[in-house]
Amino acid sequence: MAASALTPARFARVLGACLAICALVLLVTPFIGSAHVDYQKALAGEPPHAQILFEARLPRVLLASLVGGALAVAGVLFQALLRDSLADPYTLGVSSGASLGAVLAICLGWRDTGSIPAIWIAALVGAAAALLVVMGMASFGRRVSSFSLLMSGVTVNSIVIAVILLLQNVATFAQSFAIIRWLMGGIDAVEYRTIAALAAILAPVLVYLVWSARSWNLMAAGEEWAATRGVATTKLMWSGLLAGSLITGSVTAITGPIGFLGLIVPHALRLRLGADHRVLIPASFFIGAAFLAICDTVARTALAPADIPVGVMTAMLGGPFFLWLLRHRQKRYWS
């Protein structure tokens, strides 16, 4: 059970364990796949073995782990921000905003803008726009409250989804096909520079979040509680909102929405490690990363050569485990 005061030793022990799990998964999953790869030949750079391993499989594993870690952290953050353990990275409409951007790009036929696909840029802009609307609606003067955020987030979410449905309805057949594909979400092999760019966005946000984790503990316990313990609550909320949206927006732009993970990973870890965000945030990153890498490995191999949308796997693998965890927890609680 969770010890209370967080000592550097416990911090290192718990995160060491999570990191080890993540590392193990990242070491093993690139060696699992549907196509036959001769690893000696791959290391010698021989086609197609080298390309399958280094250009198709490895980037996919890396992207899945980054995205999984990012979404789990975004889940923790939005749960603390909204003080609601049922919140997830999509509650505030950031990802539907991203979806709307992508759908618009598809409908208007926006194509390349040089090196970055137009659809990613449009999705990022959509996420930012949704965030601005939510923040504008939720703030009274300079103050913002969890409740008003939740309400305006849910509202913006439904409006944006309605617009997406409308656009899909007026789109051509090929367009609505592309829209549905995008809304299903999924991990694919992207180029290494995309992965590097995503990591460059995520790293500082993660460091900031761990650094401000004690404030998030107070915030999770209540805005007044935090304010009377010296936390600049409004500033913290704005920066948290920005951080969470940056994570969700950039990830969603590349992969489309991937559900469930941002909800269950933080929740499962909270049951196991307690609520302290200093542990919860980095642990969620590592376990989220491992979890999505595993889900994606199943998604790309189970029905090969077909690819299952990874959101299907997160729900199908994560759901039963989560139910078991809750049940187990209840038993312990009552006995």
Binding site: Q79, A80, S85, A220, A221, G222, R270, A275, D276
Partner: peptide, 11 residues
Amino acid sequence: LQMPFPFTAEQ
């Protein structure tokens, strides 16, 4: 204090 998360008393 309406606590949505499982913080311990000591925490």
